[in-house]
């Protein structure tokens, strides 16, 4: 289980995370909230990229915060970062080889190419010669190949065409079958509520409320109050 307790992050004077606590078990958890509420910072601290000034992050009892990013990754946390951050100098195939754990692993390069045939076609293309959707598939593949215990995804649907978002939702819903736990940060309420069973709402560096995804999807009053969504779950 991934457990975040009393997490504070400060950048100079700015108090970005103000005591975030959450638990991620088998069920995928989505975090929603408006811009600037600290969602990306939370992803960064779980992945070890952003140092915490207070609090604790543990995975199955092992403390993660304070460790170098590569150690956090090796303990089983993979990050699909905001903006994808694929490597411009590496081809698609090189991205996959870089993190691949060999043919015997549950997620291996072959399975990635079966799941994302588009990446197989683009295997020799550079990381920047891909469309937004292809880059996102590559960033997700990079995380899956690490066969992590927890996948942290920061706005995977951002800037993607609706048909690709549907494909993405399918992929994300299948993750628990491989024993992966998913922490999903999303602005797109439809993605969040269709993929996750529980949704946490983040407001100014705190978790303001946690509720079943279905409940949030139907509660337009809560949506309006915390997320500024005018009507329904579709936007």
């Amino acid at each position: 289980m991934l457990k975040v307790s009393g997490l504070h992050v400060r950048f100079g004077q700015a108090h970005i995370l103000q005591g975030v606590s959450l638990e991620l078990g088998e069920k995928p958890l989505a975090i929603v909230g408006r811009n600037g509420m600290g969602k990306t910072t939370l992803c960064g601290s779980v992945a070890g990229l952003v140092p915490a000034s207070e609090g604790e992050i543990t995975l199955d009892g092992a403390r993660l915060n304070g460790l170098a990013p590569y150690r956090v990754a090796r303990l089983g946390v993979a990050l699909v970062p905001q903006g994808r951050r694929t490597f411009p100098s590496l081809s698609v195939h090189e991205h996959l080889k870089l993190v691949s754990q060999g043919k015997g692993a549950r997620w291996n390069v072959e399975r990635i190419y079966e799941t994302f045939p588009r990446l197989a076609e683009r295997r020799n293309n550079g990381g920047t010669e891909l469309s937004g959707g292809e880059q996102q598939m590559l960033a997700i593949s990079r995380a899956l190949l690490m066969n992590p215990k927890v996948v942290v995804m920061d706005e995977p649907s951002e800037g993607l065409a609706p048909v690709i978002v549907d494909h993405l939702i399918g992929v994300l819903r299948d993750l628990p079958k491989d024993g992966m736990r998913l922490l999903l940060v999303e602005q797109n309420l439809r993605v969040a509520t269709e993929v996750a069973e529980d949704v946490a709402i983040m407001v100014t560096g705190r978790i303001a409320a946690t509720m079943p995804a279905r409940q949030l999807a139907e509660d337009s009053e809560t949506q309006r109050r915390y997320l500024g969504v005018a009507a329904g779950a579709h936007h």
Binding site: G48, P69, A73, F87, L90, M146
Partner: peptide, 19 residues
Amino acid sequence: MMIRAGVDDREMLGACGVN
């Protein structure tokens, strides 16, 4: 590959489990 990826984005390379 690690060197080229590191030139592009050191932080992300670390997040991929590379020391």
